[in-house]
Simulated assay, not measured.
Amino acid sequence: MSGLRVENLRVELDGRTIIDDLSLQVDAGELLVVAGPSGSGKSTLLRTLAGLLPATHGRIELDGRDIGDLPPGQRDIAMMFQSDTLYPHLSVLENLCFGLRARGASRTDARMRAREIATRLGIAELLERPPHALSGGQRQRVALGRALLRQPRLFLMDEPLSSLDAPLRVRARAELMQLHRSLRSATLFVTHDQVEAMALADRLAIIEHGRLLQVGTPRDVYARPDSLAVARFLGAPAINLLDLARGAGHWHWRELALPLDAPAPRDRVILGLRPEHVYPHRSRWATRPHRSVTVAATVEAVEPVGDQQYLSVRVGDDRLTSRCEPDLSFQPGETLDMLLDLDSALLFHPASGRRLSP
């Protein structure tokens, strides 16, 4: 089978389990993004796949061949680290050409391909400079270009865009996706930036404490998280979580009876609502769901973010965040009605955190 296959991978370092029984697959031509909070084991996973760290247990296959015991140089993998690893005594052009020349490409062909990738990454004017004359973002783009030029069977990318400023990051993401589609190699991209993860991924894998929590398309993982951990990680602002209690045949939040059908673990359940499913009543973005409730709330904060704004409101001891259109005006301390879209509700088990709703 072409692509990467990892089965029951376990990695222990200094007596601690960093990767715990992790299995995943990346098909040839697919870009799988592995995301998770800092310390979740993302970089350790990449270093183990590249052969820089030993696996305690498990199998690593690339295009159907077991590479778990091969040294890094024989795995046909290109890895790009969070910090650039350029040769300081070589120019940008020579850095780009180095890997091609080492694998037998002619000087003319190597330079032609290097200039092409430099143009696509916006660094063509830097080709004669040494690395010390570049900014951090420029060095990272050179390192990205060098990795892309290798055309290996597998790309491993450890937050390669993290040092770029916002406009360059957006541009580099677009170039990376375009280049990936043209090269058709399997790519495993690690990030803790959920916006980057959602934008880049063909499929998205979420890990925490070295364990794989969920794999799926970005939209499915966002809309149907398997657990509270996944729901909390994805989404900016974060998902609204409310404790519900069962009584008199209904689920209740505060004094409100909610029209919800859900399995009943004991007498509690946790309701999750994304900010885009909580509306001020005068919002034109409201979807007018079949199932909804209205609650009086007090405005605590208003956060304009260009083409939208985030509204933070309080209902008793609970806080809710709403995403709404930017031209609506709110004042801290103002009381207003909020519509909760229960058609989009997510329900979670209060102890295990597993999603209960279908």
Score class of each variant (00 low, 15 high):
Ala257Gly: 05
Ala257Tyr: 01
Leu258Gln: 07
Leu258Met: 06
Leu258His: 04
Pro259Ser: 00
Pro259Tyr: 00
Pro259His: 00
Pro259Ala: 00
Pro259Val: 00
Leu260Asn: 02
Ala262Cys: 12
Pro263Arg: 10
Pro263Ile: 09
Pro263Thr: 06
Pro263Lys: 09
Ala264His: 08
Pro265Leu: 07
Pro265Glu: 11
Asp267Asn: 12
Asp267Arg: 08
Ile270Tyr: 10
Ile270Pro: 08
Leu271Trp: 09
Gly272Ala: 04
Leu273Glu: 07
Arg274Trp: 12
Arg274Phe: 13
Arg274Asp: 02
Arg274Ile: 11
Arg274Asn: 08
Pro275Asn: 03
Pro275Gly: 08
Pro275Arg: 03
Glu276Cys: 06
His277Lys: 02
His277Asp: 03
Val278Ser: 04
Tyr279Asn: 09
Pro280Trp: 05
Pro280Tyr: 04
His281Asp: 14
Arg282Trp: 14
Arg282His: 15
Arg282Ile: 09
Ser283Lys: 10
Ser283Gly: 09
Arg284Phe: 01
Arg284Ser: 04
Ala286Arg: 13
Ala286Leu: 14
Thr287Leu: 10
Thr287Phe: 11
Arg288Gln: 14
Arg288Ser: 14
Pro289Ile: 02
Pro289Val: 02
Pro289Gln: 12
His290Leu: 11
His290Val: 07
His290Ser: 07
Arg291Val: 07
Arg291Met: 06
Arg291Ser: 10
Ser292His: 13
Ser292Val: 01
Ser292Glu: 11
Ser292Gln: 14
Val293Ser: 06
Val293Asn: 02
Val293His: 04
Val293Thr: 07
Thr294Gly: 11
Thr294Trp: 12
Val295Arg: 01
Ala296Gln: 15
Ala296Trp: 13
Ala296Arg: 15
Ala297Met: 12
Thr298Lys: 13
Thr298Leu: 12
Thr298Tyr: 06
Val299Thr: 04
Val299His: 05
Val299Lys: 04
Val299Leu: 04
Val299Gln: 06
